[in-house]
Amino acid sequence: MTGGVPSLIDLKDIDLAYNGQTILEHVSLSVGPKEIVTLIGPNGCGKTTLIRVLLGLVRPDAGQVKRREGLTLGYVPQKISIEPSLPLTVRRFVALGGVRDVTRIEEALAHVGADHLADAQANRLSGGEFQRVALARAIARRPDLLVLDEPAQGVDVQGQVEFYRLLRHLRDQLGCGIFLVSHDLHFVMAATDQVICLNKHVCCAGQPEVVQKHPEFLHLFGPQAAREIAVYSHDHDHAHGLGGEVVAPEEGGA
């Protein structure tokens, strides 16, 4: 993703330690326009910290974070819980992202298939519904870069497949770059341009097929995991059922 087009965001040689313990070491990465980058890694590998650095929430000890000038960020955190004591419609929640224009809010909700929820109380939604609403808040801002922290957590396999399909769709329609932290390394989105495998340092990075054969990746996760990576691929002429059996592709899945 070089070739003259400036990156949306560039991290260079990021070092970060807490209480003398290294969290991130010489981490470099960049996300280009319309690029989908997936970050994977074992628990405690620094994924959450890296996302906080990328969002500008923590300052690294060393290294540079360079954002393209005027970059608009959309962020979908891992979990948002709205207090039962807070009466808040979905529409208002989306507006709190800084968007006052009513039609833009409606559009964003329609994009994620949540337009019917606009007047619902936000604290009554299911996890899957709220995930879409949080995504709507992010895209209503018309972001250049969409950052998602383990968005498919707690959603069933079918939900994950649909969510990833939605993301690819959004990338194509809105033209934003996507940086995604995946909690499930078996389930890297097939539309990913670049997988980054993190274990304090960047173990390996590249296209999904390259990463899954990389010796450091095999060492970290074992060959079993490597075989299962990127099971969801929309380019396949078939899909896998819950037991792994081959089933007919879904309508509109490609």
């Binding site: 955190p77 948002i80 709205i82 808040l88 992202g97």
Partner: peptide, 10 residues
């Protein structure tokens, strides 16, 4: 509602 989200949104 969410402090880090607000920070990330500027």
């Amino acid at each position: 509602i969410h402090e880090e989200l607000s920070l990330a949104e500027g």
